[in-house]
Simulated assay, not measured.
Amino acid sequence: MSSRNQRRQLPGDMFPGMPDVLTKRPPKAEDGEHTARTLDEAIARSFEILDEALATYPIVGTYWLSSGGGDSGNLGHLMRGRYDAVLHVNTGTGIPETTQYVRDVAAAWGDTLHELHPRNSYRDLVLGNVLASRGPNAGIRAVWQGFPGPVGHRVMYRHLKDEPLMTFRRSVVGDEGRTKKIIYLGGMRWAETERRFRNAEAIDQDGAIVWVSPLVHWTDAHMREYRTRHRCHQEHEHAPHRLCFDAALPLNEVTEHIHMSGECLCGAFAKPGELDEIGFFYPETAARLRALEEQAETAGIPACRWGQKPPTEKGSTAPAGRLCSSCVAIPGQDDLVDQWRDSGLITPDQHAAFTREAS
């Protein structure tokens, strides 16, 4: 096991009611935050985190970001009744069954669902049909072309996830971001990945958005115990998504099949053989991606294979996006952003901004 993983290695499975804690204090944990807690104590702290954000900022709306993943499901179940509506970013690249799961859960719980869509489609990004809208290359050069590898993840994240969330924020607060703010409730946890361990915070204010992560301190043992406590385990024919009773914790069947939500399949950090795995369970989704591969190849685009590092790309140490828990950067490789600067695709100031974002 690498030293990185040893730093945050978790204890083994815990008996119900026993306290658990990460083996090392996360760099951004507040004083007293890194402490052993039982599940009930972790739950109490989660409510305290949201209460603190509501008391600190002029909040005009609280929104649960539902990805369809397991951690996201735990968060929504725990915070049910404490958010105003559900947000789901339908990137257009994911498995439709996950989006349907989000719709079904929102309907079952009587929640208002805002399904957000990117302005520029994944297909148009891959085929190079999205032109720069600002700077010296506005209307001239594509912001991206080909299937992304690690370097292209930042571009995909910005267009497919970040832009829809920023558009929704503007629809709520307009130009009153100094006096009005909204909360985005996310399921980020220190125990998820090395990047989350280093960078996640319980409350992170960014302009008019206050990112709140009520589960940030939960360990994997806490998550397992919560699922055991609230999910239906009766030996009977379960209702869809295991919503067998009103207070049941839902289950996205996609996560049982491919061990991730599948809500975004941009492919930037795909594992070898991942598309075949997706195709085994969800052949229509895989067929859609393979059809796009054919279109990219016909158009003469070198990066015409989903999930494969583009032939001109040497890699990236850039971090994954704020909402991409399973995307892991590949260390020790050069950044294509330097090539964009050298070729004039971006200005030196834009290059500096990218570099600051990745640091």
Rank of each mutant, 00 (worst) to 15 (best):
N137G: 10
E30N: 09
S326F: 01
T355P: 05
E48N: 10
A191N: 02
M79L: 12
P311H: 04
A329S: 07
S171M: 09
A53E: 02
L75P: 04
R141E: 14
D124C: 12
T228F: 11
H257M: 08
I183Y: 04
S133T: 14
A200C: 07
G300I: 13
H159K: 03
V151L: 09
E235N: 13
E284G: 06
G187T: 00
F281W: 15
M223E: 15
V216R: 01
V216W: 00
D206C: 09
H257C: 09
S133I: 08
L75C: 07
V210G: 01
R305Y: 11
T255L: 03
D84M: 09
E277K: 15
S359E: 13
G70F: 05
I49C: 02
F245R: 15
L243G: 11
V89E: 04
E30M: 10
E194W: 01
R82D: 07
P331Y: 03
A191Y: 00
C244D: 11
G273E: 10
L39M: 08
M260K: 02
H236S: 10
P302A: 12
R170P: 02
E41V: 05
A44N: 13
G128C: 14
E293R: 05
P310T: 05
R37Y: 07
F168G: 01
T298A: 15
M260R: 04
R154W: 11
M1I: 06
S261V: 00
L160H: 05
P27I: 03
H34K: 06
Q100K: 14
R170T: 14
R82F: 06
G70P: 05
E277C: 11
D31T: 12
T112Y: 11
D334P: 10
G187I: 00
P148Q: 09
D335H: 13
L78G: 01
D162F: 12
P348M: 12
G186P: 03
V210C: 00
A320S: 15
Y226C: 03
L185S: 12
A239C: 13
G262F: 00
E176T: 10
Y57A: 01
H238A: 07
L54D: 02
A352Y: 09
L65Y: 02
G12P: 14
I95M: 08
H217V: 02
E41C: 04
G321K: 04
A268G: 05
L87M: 06
W190E: 01
F280P: 03
